[in-house]
């Protein structure tokens, strides 16, 4: 667990503040943003390169604030309605045909979705809506009212599901699709930047606590140099670095040889062209340039 210095603020005692957890390292501005979202009761929209720990953040918030976590994974076929409730008409018809259940009680055939679950939970929960951009372009707009008011109406049973405690909503996006403006206006936004070397060192340490310093140093140096190579289609990300460090450690590669030889390059780069570009860059090296 580590702490960062940040401005002391006048918070009422009921508002919890977030400061990362032992296995998740959050930048100071991210913590601040989380606090803003929690205090204002607004959904927190998180964007960032793959592998910057967007999904992990929700788990970490839930863990740090000791709240239950509800995860709603979005797929390309997910509809907003799925998150609220599903009326299982087929089951009711089936039961009606055989007459061995009481089909008059419609409520028995209403199944709450993840959003409904979060609203009706007795405690304040953390709700993660993961990869919202996977769904149809209109999907976020269909949830505007529900996320604003934290309630929805079930016409079949004339019931309103209302959140007793506004859930802490965390939404992640890979920027595959642009989100509608009306939706964005209601969110607090944070873009997770790619970690700098110092932060990255701590992140790798979390995963590989007993790594030699020499190996980590030269692996990190090579990794960041590789990310700078011009013309890479897909830059290597955190998860690839963690795998690569593991591979280097298992194979017992000498730290001095890492930057010169770049062993297991395939772990970091997944495209032929990228591997080629990296090799070219290494062969060329840095020569004196300038005026």
């Amino acid at each position: 667990m580590w702490y960062t210095a940040r401005p002391v603020k006048a918070m009422d005692s009921t508002t919890p503040t977030y400061s990362g957890t032992a296995d998740y390292i959050a930048a100071p501005d991210l913590m601040q943003t989380v606090d803003v979202a929690v205090a204002l009761g607004r959904p927190l929209l998180i964007k960032g390169e793959p592998g910057t720990g967007k999904t992990m953040l929700a788990q970490s918030i839930a863990h740090a604030l000791a709240k239950p976590l509800i995860v709603w994974n979005i797929k390309s076929t997910t509809k907003a309605q799925d998150g609220l409730y599903v009326y299982d008409t087929v089951q009711r018809l089936y039961d009606g045909q055989f007459g061995d259940h009481d089909v008059c009680d419609i409520a028995a055939y209403i199944k709450l979705g993840k959003l409904g679950e979060a609203f009706s939970h007795p405690e304040r929960v953390v709700l993660l809506i993961d990869e919202i951009d996977k769904a149809d372009l209109e999907f976020p707009n269909d949830l505007l009212w529900e996320l604003d008011q934290m309630e929805f109406f079930i016409p079949e049973t004339r019931q309103t599901v209302r959140a007793g405690q506004r859930p802490i909503v965390v939404i992640t996006s890979n920027a595959e699709k642009e989100l509608p403006d009306a939706f964005l206006r209601r969110c607090v936004f944070h873009f997770i930047e790619f970690p700098d070397p110092a932060t990255m060192r701590r992140i790798v340490r979390v995963h590989h606590p007993d790594l030699e310093d020499g190996l980590l140093d030269s692996a990190l140096e090579s990794f960041y140099r590789l990310r700078e190579v011009q013309g890479l289609q897909k830059k290597p990300s955190t998860s690839e670095l963690i795998d690569w460090v593991q591979a280097l450690a298992i194979a017992g590669v000498e730290p001095a040889r890492i930057s010169a030889r770049m062993p297991f390059l395939g772990v970091l780069l997944k495209k032929d062209k990228d591997v080629e570009a990296a090799r070219r860059d290494m062969a060329g090296g840095r020569t004196g340039r300038g005026t």
Binding site: K9, D29, T33, A37, A39, L40, R42, F189
Partner: peptide, 29 residues
């Protein structure tokens, strides 16, 4: 939303805080 955050003193009294809170509330991309 930004004003509300300032009213609740979420930015503290620092310029960095103001910068972070402002960006979170006002900029969506």
């Amino acid at each position: 939303m930004f004003s509300q955050a300032l009213a609740q003193d979420l930015a503290g009294s620092s310029l960095t805080g103001l910068y972070d809170v402002g960006r979170a509330c006002l900029v969506k991309s």
